[in-house]
Nucleic acid binder design. Structure first.
Length: 260
DNA sequence: TATTCCCTGTGC
DNA sequence: GCACAGGGAATA
């Protein structure tokens, strides 16, 4: 379930496994991954050491010792599986890294929508991303300026990665709920106080997400969402029924009682 | 700015 | 069967 908190957590685990290690063997196991990881790339990556792993928005960047970069995107349901080389591959393993310490990291993704791209040292990836949600430079007036360039309703606007990096469908809806703003409110007409509330709402929703990402692998009970996937259930704030609508082809959950 | 497509799995 | 799934690039 990879949105920003999950990707942040995944990138940390990946960093722990890869940093300083040499990739003995990179393999693409599915045709959709072989399109971006051809034989030449796979050959070139072999023997390179991992200098650093970082996250930008929902992308994970693996910086290699020859200056090349691998960019991993989980899309809808990618995740890492950590195991040992030579053992059976995890189900739905799409790409795997065999490391010089005998361990193997696999990208598992049942839908095979995940992407792994290789960038040459002289042509590094360029991201059209807005500020990270935690960036101190992201103040209400900056968010408002970004939103004023947008047409259409606020909730789909929050999914635009050039507005704020890493906001996905769940947290866009949760942020609107926290801020008591209708997902249908025009993005470019939100007042500064409402934008400030939205920013606070986004940060609290993501904070819950970070708690959950840490709990996910420990079997600890997770913090429930307030609106996402709760159609027909009562709102935690006003008790009215949560509704589901479609915006820009995706589900939006909200409470028409207290989100105006 | 909305739809279509990429894939496969799940739940009704 | 069919609708739907958290993303994003490519389209009209």
């Amino acid at each position: 379930m990879p949105e920003l908190p999950e990707v942040e957590y995944a990138a940390r685990r990946l960093r722990r496994a890869l940093r300083g290690r040499t990739i003995v063997h990179l393999r693409a196991h599915h045709p959709s991954q072989r399109r971006t990881l051809g034989a030449a790339v796979v050959r070139r990556v072999a023997g390179k050491m991992v200098r650093a792993v970082e996250r930008r928005g929902k992308s994970q960047l693996v910086h290699l010792s020859d200056g090349a970069t691998l960019v991993v995107h989980f899309r809808m349901n990618g995740d890492w599986d950590f195991g040992r080389s030579g053992t059976a591959l995890a189900a739905h393993a799409r790409v795997s890294f065999d490391l010089d310490d005998g361990k193997r990291v696999s990208l598992v993704d049942s839908r095979a929508l995940c992407t792994v791209r290789w960038y040459a040292p002289d042509a590094p990836p360029v991201f059209k991303l807005g500020p990270e949600p935690e960036d101190p430079a992201l103040v209400p007036s900056a968010l408002r300026a970004a939103l004023q360039r947008k047409r259409g309703p606020i909730k789909p606007a929050l999914l635009d990665q050039s507005v704020v990096a890493g906001v996905g469908n769940i947290y866009a809806a949760e942020a609107c709920w926290h801020a008591r703003i209708s997902p249908r409110a025009p993005a470019n007409k939100l007042s500064l106080p409402r934008v400030a509330r939205l920013l606070d709402g986004l940060r609290s929703a993501l904070a819950d997400g970070h708690t959950n990402a840490a709990r996910y692998h420990k079997g600890v009970r997770e913090v429930p969402f307030n609106v996402y996937d709760r159609e027909g259930e009562p709102c935690n704030r006003c008790g009215r029924m949560i509704r589901r609508i479609t915006q820009a082809g995706r589900s939006t959950y909200f409470c028409a009682g207290c989100q105006r």
